[in-house]
Design a protein around this nucleic acid. Structure first.
Lengths: 226, 226
DNA sequence: GTCTATATACAGATAGAC
DNA sequence: GTCTATCTGTATATAGAC
């Protein structure tokens, strides 16, 4: 009930915890988890190391927090898309586009999530892996649904799903908002690439392209921010 | 001229330097470069830390050596394929298959190469990046050649090339020789996926599949081992 | 909530005997 | 070529005053 002592006054202001998370995401992405020291982290968040420990329990848990925060909305969005959209080609496009959109617009957090799994072990690793496996399962399911419906044609559906996922995840390695390519055009192109790779066809056997479909905007399935 | 004091007697034996490299590849892949200590490295190579330094200059250069050793043969093979094979679809398949073959059969070294670039800086980073950019350029060129010949159809050839490369590189994250999928079948599937993604067609406009082509074996373009 | 100061362990790398 | 011993710096994390 009492007003906060510092910051967080106006809406849109960043809490100290968010500042810590943002600094960690940037440094973990630039230098890697083990390449980032507590002192680097504290300096980037403009805190002393002791104060830093007031806002986190330890470095490992900070990484888990970043990863969970990146994967959970992806899984929720993919689950919602599969529940909402019956047409396999449209659903797959929506999943691909949401994934690409997230990896481009939250590039560093997704990059950390995809590259620092080996820094974790034990229960922390298990928790993140469980979530990630759920998410991958939704991709596999989307591909399989299309194969069963006769819309997709691929010799190894599971292999294709993994290939598509890794292709789309790669966006976080190079995307720049300053580049020539607009975000929505990028998403559409990856959806088209996915349909092509799966040799998607309409009932007449004609190759299916994204423009034939009514794919919802990638921002449609945003999770409410914490 | 004098016989070596220890090991390296019979052909097929491993020199101490090779043992160091092998240990480094395994540990860097498992724990990451910064997650691997000099002591871990020495223990894995069954040496003391001092003796380890007799076989390497320092940890950074060891990483560079691993990366160069992984990328150089890939670049050489892709360059040879582009020089040898005029047909764009066949050349692209050969490049994809060689890449997948290398990433599956030398999984850990390629994984390290693809994930630890950020551990390098300065000239060391520049050297590796130069080589990697050359390699990526060969992929781009192969895709563009097919687009210009009217064999491939894609809205963003450069984007497609990068997507294909990242898709194929992903193999090093999960492949296991013990799995059900045979290596040659894996290579063929990725080549087919690549043709599909590029919407490759024959002169009659019929979708092209890998079985229509005369693709050389991935082992055809092996570099002689050092 | 924020600080100074520090505990304790380990990092990469080397000296110098044999 | 291999060893024991060690240098020097930095790692994560905490104690305890304010």
């Amino acid at each position: 009930m009492s007003p906060p002592k510092s910051g967080a006054a106006k809406a849109g202001d960043e809490t100290t915890q968010q500042r810590v998370l943002r600094a960690a995401v940037r440094l973990f992405a630039e230098r890697g988890f083990h390449g980032t020291g507590i002192r680097d982290l504290a300096a980037a968040a403009e805190l002393t190391t002791s104060t830093l420990y007031h806002y986190m329990t330890n470095k490992d848990d900070l990484l888990v927090e970043i990863m969970m925060g990146a994967i959970t909305p992806l899984r929720d969005a993919a689950a919602a898309i599969r529940a909402d959209i019956a047409d396999p080609a449209t659903a797959l496009c929506a999943i691909v586009e949401h994934h690409v959109w997230a990896h481009a617009s939250d590039r560093l957090a997704t990059l950390v999530t995809d590259t620092e799994l080996r820094a974790l072990s034990g229960d922390r690793l298990k928790d993140v892996l469980t979530l990630r496996d759920e998410y991958e399962g939704l991709w596999r399911g989307a591909v399989e649904a299309g194969v069963e419906a006769g819309v997709f044609s691929t010799a190894h559906p599971n292999l294709a799903a993994r290939a598509l996922l890794q292709m789309a995840t790669g966006v976080s390695h190079w995307f720049s908002a300053k580049g020539r390519l607009k975000l929505d055009e990028l998403c559409r192109t990856y959806a088209d690439n996915a349909l092509a790779l799966l040799r998607a066809t309409d009932p007449d056997g004609k190759p299916l392209v994204r423009a034939d479909l009514n794919v919802p905007s990638p921002t449609r399935y945003l999770s409410p921010l914490p």
